[in-house]
Write a protein that binds this DNA or RNA. Structure first.
Lengths: 227, 227
DNA sequence: TACCATTTGTGCGTATGTATG
DNA sequence: CCATACATACGCACAAATGGT
């Protein structure tokens, strides 16, 4: 009787409505006694279910079945190369533009820096099987580059280079659907106005913002949760 | 010195590249001795970092800093009413269609049932502040309804009703960008061909599929991760 | 291949901390 | 202020996986 068994049994009771939504379930001590395990084992099982949003736990108040469980879907945000190769296609990328430039207002707002601040601007096209897969526009804080030396992003994509060479960071991600502009459409080989799947990501360290990326995927792209 | 302190210190060392990507870090025992805590405490900290994708752990092989950390972004999938009310807007919904019908091929494939199987078809418009917020098309397995009695989905949306009245389930979610069809555009009050943010969700119990939902959000909708 | 040593994974019993009804 | 229930920690033990001999 491990903690996973306890988790499954508790989950079964929730699903079977032995313990209906909103109801307080027996305490850790009681469950430990019932299942013949240590309290720590029950704790581990209940903690997992609480993290998944199925239980709500509060000291002294006890543990209750969530009334409106907020499902937590987890997305695996991998490097584009990995994503492409996982599909069994060959990956390549082309740097379309690379220059120092005053940051755009929209990007400045998201990165939390003054508009017009001098940043490295990068425009990249990612290819899968030789065909356009994603179009990337990136603003990169040059301060995070060791010695402010710009690496060769033609060899390794900025995405990958940052992951491997700059500090691990926290970030924010947002997804939306937009209509492709003429320029974006041209890069992706689709028609202007076609719907594109947009991923916007901001990453930063404790001290400074690192980068803001806007990634466009053409029609047919699906982002799936890994359950 | 709690497990969170250990986690932060280990994270700091990873970020500072004291332990570069790919490198094996000291074992639990050694870290426990260094930090003056029990091994279980170190274990808890390292386990969390491994779940976050920053460490890779294997028995006997030890713990190493991930070479290509796969960031795990978590999305809170709440019911639409909550989402709307969280924006400070009033929620309402209208059932546009409700009938028993042979399931469409596309939906049958996703639900894993024979095409043409008799399912409850539901079309709903969700309103935020009186304006169209999302358009929902749903196929619902009537077997999951207690006594096969169809509830009044005009009073409580199917989404919410299912969460509260049917077994908790596992599911699969996918997001994409598509062009609105004429009918969808009319329902959402946008132009045909406008990009829409599409969420498709399948849920099932251990025994049977429950429902397949296709949810369309009009322009301006953003799905954000909760980091 | 067979075995051994190592490292993480999990469990128990106990104790104390902490939020809170 | 107290009693309660969860949160965390310790030390020990054994299981399971697996790299190496």
């Amino acid at each position: 009787m491990g903690w996973e068994d306890v988790r499954e049994e508790v989950l079964r009771r929730i699903r079977a409505r032995d313990w209906p939504p909103g109801e307080v379930i027996p305490g850790e001590e009681a469950l430990a006694a019932e299942f013949g395990v240590a309290r720590a084992t029950v704790n581990r099982a209940l903690r997992e279910l609480a993290e998944a949003g199925l239980l709500e736990r509060r000291r002294k108040a006890g543990t209750r079945v969530a009334l409106l469980p907020v499902r937590k879907a987890t997305l695996d945000i991998s490097i584009i190369r990995q994503e492409v190769e996982a599909r069994g296609e060959s990956y390549a990328h082309r740097v379309l533009a690379q220059r120092m430039e005053g940051i755009s207002l929209a990007a400045a707002v998201r990165m939390g820096v003054p508009a017009g601040a001098s940043m490295l601007f990068l425009e990249t096209l990612h290819l899968a099987g030789g065909r356009p897969f994603a179009h990337e526009v990136r603003w990169l804080n040059p301060d995070v580059l060791p010695g402010r030396v710009v690496p060769d992003f033609g060899a390794v994509s900025a995405n990958e280079w940052l992951v491997q060479n700059v500090a691990y960071a926290t970030g924010d991600i947002a997804f939306s659907a937009e209509a492709a502009t003429a320029a974006e459409a041209a890069a992706l080989g689709i028609a202007a106005g076609d719907p594109v799947f947009v991923t916007e990501r901001v990453t930063w360290t404790a001290e400074a913002p690192i980068t803001f990326v806007r990634l466009l995927h053409g029609p047919g792209y699906r982002l799936r949760t890994m359950v």
